[in-house]
Design a protein around this nucleic acid. Structure first.
Lengths: 232, 232
DNA sequence: TAGTGTGAAAGCGTTCACAGCA
DNA sequence: TGCTGTGAACGCTTTCACACTA
């Protein structure tokens, strides 16, 4: 399965390990910060220390993507930044829909960092008549629309990414409709595993689950009685 | 490294792989839902289908924890539910602090699902005088306190878990203070890697990074032109 | 000299496949 | 018969170690 597409010029298509992709946003952030401080080269070790991985891994990641540094010096901040942004598809403005304008949905709509990262909240939906028409977003310039027009609005704006902040019971139904409307990437905050057709990617962020995982650890720590666990 | 503690009666101490722990909250949720529907046994396959993993993995996870089912039948919902809740330390009420009462912090404070899962938002902090004293939380019964009293309040309430929803620049400083006050588990929403002493666990939820990872995929999909990628 | 680039080795987590039991 | 429990195989990720070079 998963044959290499042979004719793709300088392209990493789908052959890039997910683990590598998942580290790129962090590298990008460090490069942004370095660039704004006027730093123009960083070694793999500099990068590694700040995202808490090994320097070998940073070098391997970058080499997998075909990005190379200078021996004895490091990587060029400006060049690398553009290359990574390009891999992540952040060069163009990406319209994103948010469905479910509860507390969390409104908080995300108001997140001021999205525009700088190439994302634009292009549509916000809910099913509660009391909310429809209200203004949300960092600038208050986004009007909540009724869910019934979801397909039309999403397709019209050519939206391919969506954030789901609806109750768990509604999540699958909404996901189906978003996919039908052309969405291929879903960020799901509802605590259910979504079924989607091949070619559609879902990432879940389950805040309650994260707390529970941490609770396991907190339980261990207190059981042992706070003695510092010696581990690298 | 990491020697087995021999004398611990029926105890899984720290020998449980993180990956296993991370799946338990999902299993727990399914068991809760099954229990409320009156279902009293579920097979590993039933469980697996709903959290989108293989049945072998479910069986292995449960067997690692020492939980066993009945051959030919499955697992007892009620018993398994209690066992998992116990492993995760959800039997007792866990006080949690939230630092940073911006949009996201307030949204989390208002999340109504926490009490049912054994978590209680016991304190909310911010540094902005305009917010101090305002009421937040699902019931509006939580008063935002000034960050300056963080150490005292956290220690007094014996809080060991905290949620960080502060700006990235403030995250490390706040984390240091929380740890000093006795917090051992941190859920970090700021887009920086925190440095913490051994014995303290951090889990990061980086919403912008998730979107960027999805953007990579959206970029691939559109580049290929929406033809359904045939993959299992 | 300082730091990249990369095979080879190690480590984990997941899946396979099937023996064993209600 | 149906489903659990689990060693063995597999594949992905990470680390090690070192040749190489600006």
């Amino acid at each position: 399965m998963q044959q290499e597409e042979p004719g793709r010029s300088s392209d990493w298509d789908r052959g890039v390990p997910t683990a590598v992709i998942a580290r790129l946003p962090q590298l990008l952030r460090i490069l942004d910060s370095a660039a704004s401080r006027g730093v123009d080269t960083l070694s793999s070790d500099d990068l590694a220390r700040r995202i808490d991985v090994s320097s070998a891994m940073v070098r391997k990641d970058l080499s997998i993507l075909g990005f190379s540094g200078t021996r004895g010096v490091g990587y060029e901040v400006a060049a690398l930044r553009l290359q990574i942004a390009d891999v992540l598809g952040l060069s163009t403005d990406r319209p994103v829909a948010i469905v479910g304008m509860g507390h969390l949905g409104r908080a995300l709509a108001a997140y001021p960092g999205f525009p700088a990262q190439g994302f634009r909240i292009a549509a916000a939906f809910d099913r509660d008549p009391a909310i429809i028409g209200s203004r949300v977003g960092a600038e208050g310039d986004l009007v909540v629309r009724h869910e019934s027009g979801l397909e039309r609005d999403v397709a019209a704006a050519e939206i391919r990414m969506a954030i789901l902040t609806v109750p768990p019971a509604a999540a699958q139904r909404v996901a189906d409709r978003l996919v039908a409307a052309g969405v291929v990437s879903l960020l799901n905050f509802a605590a259910v595993a979504l079924q989607v057709p091949p070619g559609v990617q879902v990432r879940r962020t389950d805040i309650a689950a994260e707390l529970q995982i941490l609770a396991f650890h907190a339980r261990q720590s207190t059981a042992i009685g706070d003695r510092a666990t010696v581990m690298a």
